[in-house]
Amino acid sequence: MANKLNSLAHTKWLCKYHIVFTPKYRRKIIYNQYRRDLQGILRLLCQYKGVKILEGHMMPDHVHLLVSIPPKISVSSFMGYLKGKSSLMIFDKHANLKYKFGNRHFWAEGYYVSTVVLNESTIRKYIRDQEMNDQAQDRLSVKEYEDPFRGR
């Protein structure tokens, strides 16, 4: 376990968090060009704060992150920073989004966070498999919208 610990001047620490947050109104906005830009922006902002992204995935309507946050930064202050700065940066990069989101509110209020210690591998697998599960659910739900009288 010693090789997994991080250190600051006088502390050894192992603080990992599973975080999920969504765009405002859970709009399915995290697609092609926005997805790539958001990934770069989130990586850059985490790097500025000394936060390591251990695992992450962008779904069409939410973001999963497994991060290691130093104990000198609280999770709430980090999330305020991450969501605030990333929304400003995405609106600067894509000016057309301000018409959909107005007042530079890209992310919805709040987020989900849980601590991770012993079940890290389970959470990593969950984050990786989340998209496949959602796609399977979408394939099942498409049948509802097909017209049974067309023969397709």
Rank of each mutant, 00 (worst) to 15 (best):
L42G: 03
K72D: 08
S114A: 13
I30G: 00
R36E: 14
S77N: 15
F106P: 03
S74M: 13
G40E: 15
G84F: 08
Q47A: 09
V75G: 07
K98Q: 12
F91V: 02
K100V: 13
Q33K: 12
Q47D: 11
N103F: 13
P70F: 04
V75N: 12
Y48L: 11
F21S: 05
I69W: 02
K52D: 07
V67P: 04
I73D: 04
K85W: 07
M59E: 09
K98R: 15
N103E: 15
H18A: 08
D92I: 05
F78M: 06
V20Q: 07
L38H: 02
K100G: 04
V51Y: 01
L54W: 00
L97Y: 05
V116N: 05
I30L: 13
I30K: 04
V117Q: 08
R104D: 06
T115D: 09
R43Y: 00
K52V: 09
R104I: 12
N32Q: 11
K83T: 01
V116F: 00
Y31N: 13
G50I: 09
Y34T: 03
L38D: 05
V51I: 13
Q39E: 14
M89H: 11
K24V: 06
S77W: 10
M59G: 06
Y99N: 14
K28G: 06
R36G: 10
M89E: 14
S87R: 11
G50N: 07
I90D: 02
I90G: 00
Y31T: 15
L42S: 00
L97F: 06
